[in-house]
Design a protein around this nucleic acid. Structure first.
Lengths: 141, 141
DNA sequence: TCAGATAGGGATAAGTTTTTCCCCTATTGC
DNA sequence: GCAATAGGGGAAAAACTTATCCCTATCTGA
């Protein structure tokens, strides 16, 4: 397994929530589990762009962070169900709010994101580098 | 500059907000800019763990995503000020809510995160792998 | 007998982000 | 002439995340 070489800061609330939500698919996992899609195979069908492997890894992390629990049924073929913990449930309204903000501004966001992806430094028409071109008032340091 | 090889999904609001907030320091940048720390050097002092380079890169992205604007004063030494756009301001309440959630649960979160970092598979006392050990009831597929 | 469903992990490769180091601008002060 | 200041970017390395491939195991159904 990969071992971190840089220990994260855990000073403020933003650091902390950043740690537990960081990961390409975690928010979606929480969301779908909350919607009642509990079994790993269901989640994998819901999030087909993610590899099976990574979903497992991120589910493990969510479990270690106590946002979800994993229940193993001793049957065969195996059956496993994830559920949100009470703690995990408290984060759902935040995710909902994020999703809603994104939905409300989706046209604008999509535009800006696509524009940014495409024009990764193709254009030269802006003269950012005219710092010293005009005046010479002292900076208000 | 690095060029993406995998184009991101932009289907739902969560995808979109994920794109614009993804980046180790972006949320903090937005937060501090909102608090009135506008100049790059101020921001760098506020976020000493980030390299200067990365803050610039992420500020650029925030600008391209229209969450902040950059005002250049043609003086010397250079003076630059970032401000939130009206659009950028609408995301602040969300960030505040995230930070608050993190603060409210900080002890629990810190515990869980540190535990997870330290016990990256050191312990062998759990028997996860007893899938087929017990019964044989059919799975409720 | 062999594919498929179910759940998961190890090893390695590929992709992406962040850090580090060094360079540039132009002026002021020593 | 040299350092400090303020803002910024290129190149390469390091750190980190995600994808790919292949393996475990048992039972069902074709």
């Amino acid at each position: 397994m990969y071992e971190r070489k840089v220990i994260p800061n855990l000073n403020c609330g933003l650091d902390l929530i950043g740690e537990v939500l960081y990961g390409k698919w975690k928010i979606r996992l929480l969301w779908f589990i909350d919607q009642g899609h509990k079994r790993p195979s269901e989640l994998q069908r819901k999030i087909p762009d993610a590899s099976r492997r990574v979903l497992n890894m991120q589910l493990n992390e969510l479990e270690r962070h106590e946002l979800v629990t994993r229940k193993i049924y001793p049957v065969v073929p195996p059956k496993v169900e994830y559920s949100l913990t009470e703690f995990g449930k408290t984060i759902i309204p935040l995710i909902a709010a994020l999703g809603q903000w994104g939905d409300e501004h989706q046209d604008r966001l999509r535009d800006a994101i696509l524009k940014q992806i495409k024009t990764s430094e193709l254009d030269d028409t802006n003269q950012d580098s005219a710092f010293y071109a005009v005046g010479n008032a002292p900076p208000s340091t």
